[in-house]
């Protein structure tokens, strides 16, 4: 989650990084089939990463999802 927040800082006009406590928002977690945490959902499912990953991996998935 911290990594996503770091990313938002770089372009807050375009980026919103939201940590979501899955047990408090089960409908949303179910919608994205959250199984393991942390799970990062990019633009409502355009991209997805399960588990904590290094900066380079999230960047690569962002590039793929935003293309």
């Amino acid at each position: 989650m911290l990594l996503a927040h770091q990313m938002a800082m770089e372009n807050p006009r375009m980026i919103r990084a939201e940590g979501v406590e899955a047990t408090e928002f089960p409908d949303l977690a179910n919608r994205f089939q959250v199984m393991g945490v942390p799970q990062t959902v990019i633009n409502a499912g355009a991209g997805m990463i399960v588990g904590a990953v290094p900066e380079q991996n999230l960047l690569a998935e962002l590039m793929r999802a935003m293309n």
């Binding site: 989650m1 996503a4 990313m7 938002a8 372009n11 375009m14 980026i15 919103r16 990084a17 939201e18 940590g19 979501v20 406590e21 899955a22 949303l28 977690a29 994205f32 959250v34 945490v37 942390p38 799970q39 990062t40 959902v41 990019i42 633009n43 409502a44 962002l62 935003m66």
Partner: peptide, 8 residues
Amino acid sequence: PLHLQVFV
């Protein structure tokens, strides 16, 4: 726009 949601 980019919306990142990190479920925890």
